[in-house]
């Protein structure tokens, strides 16, 4: 496993947080709660037909992997995929998407490690979508609609997007803001449980762990540092990230006790996406 490098020293920033996730694929049941929790939290709309999985907006998407074997030796595994909040090479903040955006509509925060998306600046060129190896970005081909009174449940914490802009998972950044405001007000540090993403909170299987990868006290740190006491969760498994070889430095780690799953995760996601498509695409 690559030693995670504090990005705090980059570009003169004070040492900051680096929020990330560890997803236990052995626990994930593919129930989809994380997907809808995200939609409800982040004012993601839905269309009458969402069966064309190329134009359906799901910041958190649960893929189904298959070991490619014939009945009855087939095995499948679900893989939830938020934005990886890539740190880029040497974790210097050059995420694939950030590097290509001509409008600086997507930005890397050295304070949190979160890759933001600023809708008002995005003019829809979609370069970032091409650059993102994880297909984590979505384009608004249509204006969002909330028929009947559905707009009444929209959250004021997240702005509603319009046609022509790209959107993606923000690690529920507004939750960070709220939690920080409170901590600041009460003059104390942010606690691990105070800032949790909506998917983490919703997952009924407890498959997602979220926290600061730079904070020794946080579970995500423990799990991703071999010398630490993350064994409880690891149980002999090694955390892996998708497409490590691209040096995108994703902040989302996965755990699986199954070799073929680990292998699939390390294979090219494009190949993987193809394999997934061959077995029927999005699940």
């Amino acid at each position: 496993m690559t030693e995670t490098q504090g990005h705090g020293n980059q570009e003169g920033h004070a040492p900051g947080s680096k929020f990330g996730m560890v997803i236990d694929l052995d626990k994930c049941t593919g129930c989809g709660a994380c997907m809808v929790a995200c939609m409800a939290e982040n004012n993601v709309p839905t269309k009458p037909d969402e069966t064309n999985k190329l134009d359906t907006i799901t910041w958190m998407r649960v893929f189904k992997l298959s070991n490619g074997k014939a009945f009855p030796d087939a095995e499948t595994c679900y893989l939830p995929r938020p934005c990886m909040h890539c740190g880029g090479k040497h974790d210097a903040g050059h995420s694939p998407c950030v590097s290509v955006c001509p409008a600086t509509a997507t930005d890397y925060s050295y304070k949190t490690g979160i890759v933001s998306q600023i809708y008002t600046r995005c003019f829809g060129c979609r370069y970032c979508m091409g650059a993102c190896p994880y297909h984590a970005r979505y384009f608004n081909w249509w204006d969002p609609k909330w028929p009947a009174d559905m707009k009444n449940y929209l959250s004021p914490d997240v702005s509603v997007r319009m046609r022509g802009v790209v959107e993606k998972c923000s690690f529920c950044f507004h939750r960070y803001q709220r939690a920080m405001d409170l901590a600041y007000y009460e003059e104390r540090e942010l606690e691990e449980n105070e800032y949790q993403t909506a998917c983490t909170q919703a997952c009924p299987a407890g498959a997602i762990t979220f926290g600061d990868l730079n904070n020794e006290d946080h579970m995500v740190y423990k799990v991703t540092h071999e010398e630490s006491e993350g064994d409880e969760i690891l149980r002999g498994r090694t955390p892996f990230r998708l497409l490590e070889e691209l040096e995108t430095n994703p902040k989302v780690y996965y755990l699986s006790g199954r070799d073929w799953v680990v292998k699939a995760g390390n294979a090219s996601v494009r190949e993987e996406a193809k394999a997934v498509k061959d077995t029927g695409g999005h699940h």
Binding site: T29, C31, G32, M35, V36, M39, A40, T46, D49, E50, T51, N52, K53, T56, T58, V62, K64, T279, G280, G281, H282, H283
Partner: peptide, 26 residues
């Protein structure tokens, strides 16, 4: 679990998560 089978149907968000190996258009 993404498809309710009882008296209560899926919600719109649930339908959105249904795989394209179960439903394609209509």
């Amino acid at each position: 679990i993404r498809l309710s089978t009882g008296a209560l149907a899926d919600t719109p968000f649930m339908v959105k998560t249904v795989s394209d190996t179960k439903l394609k258009k209509r």
